[in-house]
Design a protein around this nucleic acid. Sequence first.
DNA 1: CATAGGATCGCCT
DNA 2: GGCGATCCTATGT
Length: 204
Amino acid sequence: MKKLPLSFYDRDDVVLIAHELIGKVLCTNIDGITTKGIITETEAYAGIIDKASHAYRGRRTDRTKIMFGRPGISYVYLCYGVHSLFNIVTNKKDIPHAVLVRGIYPLKGVETIVSRRKTKEPLYRIADGPGKLTKALGIEFRQHNNLDLLGDSVWIEDHSIEVNPNEIEIGPRIGIDYAEEDALLPYRFLWRRNQNSDFPIDYQ
DNA sequence: CATAGGATCGCCT
DNA sequence: GGCGATCCTATGT
């Protein structure tokens, strides 16, 4: 159970990183309460050549400048005026790659997660969306944007959870119809095991 | 300054 | 399956 090092994020292949993040553990410490979840769904956003990316064609604004910074930093933004979406900045400075985390399975602080979500959904569906997981883990765009993932507020751990490659569904990203031909790229990774039932093993 | 639209969700029918 | 919520961002005048 180790915090992922900078070298994990400081790599060229954002699609590979998105793939490898399946089964890693996203963690937060908010007001002294730690919550953790196994990452079950991710999407890669490949920077200036990717029509789905906020940084397409090198667009550098107050919002997107985070992605042009160092790897291993959070990029959290408000979507539809309602949801904070959590991304991980990868690759070197000035190369605006990012991975959107789209789903987790609760691992630690389950009571806190359930109370934050205010729903009776089962655990396998309580944080199975990009806006749902941020609420579950207490991530908000004003407070958790541009944070160092090697710090002690938001970070990612490797619990050596084994993921059967056959259980990872690879396909097009969600909600990016505007991205034309890039909308079909296989940049989304989903751990299907988590779709229908709770995890049988307590990894904690 | 005004305006359109969004890497979504939950509730409604 | 449809739609409203809700507010920030990016763009244009």
